[in-house]
Amino acid sequence: MGVPLSWYLALSGCLFALGLIGVIIRRNPLLLLLAIELMLNAANVALIGFSRYWNVTDGHVFALVVMVVAASEVVVGLGLVVAVFRARIALDVDQMTSLKG
């Protein structure tokens, strides 16, 4: 017996909700980035699930593009975290309100 599509969609929704809760309640930028990774993975599960359901390859292509976006986002995000750390500002997203370096 296989696993129907709706199970994967339910799991994807739960994972996305977990990531969303993490983004809302956390103030440490490192944990925020990890929660965003969870949300992107939830989207990937839904994409691959639909790809399996319709028997097409397009979802796989988009999942790979999402992974590239996630990698770029982590590189820039961690670069910002390190820059903020070296400028001796507290690692708290509520206090990082100024865009001007």
Partner: peptide, 17 residues
């Protein structure tokens, strides 16, 4: 990055609950 930040990154800010 977590290893580079050391204690300050690990302690961080409290949660928003």
């Amino acid at each position: 990055v977590i290893a580079y930040l050391g204690d300050r990154g690990v302690l961080g800010a409290p949660d928003r609950v």
